[in-house]
Computed example of a mutant assay.
Amino acid sequence: MKKLGKIAAVTLLSAALLAACTPKKEEGHDAHGAHADHGAAGQAIETKASWKLSAAQPQANQPTNIAIQINDAKGAPIEKFDVSHEKQMHLIVVSKDLSYFDHIHPEYKQKGLFEVGTTFPKNGEYKLIADFVPSGGQPRTETNWIQVGAEKPAAPAPIKPDSGMTQTAQGIEVTLSFDKLQAGQPVQMNFSFKDAKTKEPIKNLQPYLGAVGHVVIISGDVEQYIHNHPIDEKATGPDARFSTSFPKSGVYKIWGQFQHNGKVFTVPYVVQVP
């Protein structure tokens, strides 16, 4: 009986982890958001976003202001938002070919309105993903595609998985590993950090937005979106572990963001998930 009880407990734990990490489709949205640090707490508050750019036709290398109005299902502005990892909104900006990635933070102007300025590096299509938590509610994502430059470019070539899982940024060698890679199953990711010259472990990572790091995962078709926070937010290296789940088989791009010596750095990886 004790053995059966342990098996049942493990089964329930796995099911709970999968439920917390698996992206869920939201009506009227083309992105799927998952947050490892948010369970099902809070009520489901329906939201709708209106997007306005300072230029009807944004141009590459020109400053562009983005205004995001968040309303409820009846069209009334949502007044209050929870602070999630030091910010009321996280805005992810990615190009359609996933070669460009930015993680910025719009300023709340009250009555549901957020604003932020950015500069797009080249012409093409970009997806904007607003990630926020209405006060007392569950995490939400709202998305918008925009065209930068007048001429619509040809469809981008599919991204290809990396041959290796080690990247170097700001003199730090970062290696990504998984306990397994399988769609629809809980997955643990580990980022390990070494000095690129001495190969000594890096043990003094600094908090970035209240945690040792943040991870954003987007599928090759730019439809699936996952935002993960670390298992141990107070870790300082040489390892940073995250739990996630890939909703379906395919190619995904992963961006890990960390801070060392006062500088934030981003390391990208492309993986094939069976």
Rank of each mutant, 00 (worst) to 15 (best):
A31T: 14
G75Y: 03
L17N: 04
D37M: 13
S54D: 08
K180F: 09
N204C: 08
Y100T: 15
A155D: 13
S243C: 03
A8L: 12
I70C: 05
P121V: 11
H29K: 07
K248G: 00
H260S: 03
K6S: 12
Q88G: 10
L128E: 06
S84E: 14
S249D: 09
E79I: 12
V271F: 12
I66L: 10
K199A: 04
D195M: 07
G28N: 07
G33R: 11
G33A: 14
I129Q: 07
T266P: 01
S95P: 03
Q185P: 02
M165T: 08
V267E: 02
S14Q: 13
M165W: 06
G149T: 09
P63R: 05
P247T: 05
H29M: 13
F191E: 02
A56G: 14
W145Q: 10
F178S: 06
H85P: 03
A20N: 14
Q88L: 11
A40D: 14
D232Q: 08
G149I: 02
F191S: 05
L205E: 00
S177T: 15
G213A: 02
N144Q: 15
I68M: 04
A19D: 10
I231Y: 00
I231T: 12
Q185W: 05
K197W: 02
R140W: 02
E233N: 05
L13S: 07
S249P: 06
P139R: 12
Y225Q: 01
G124N: 07
V271D: 07
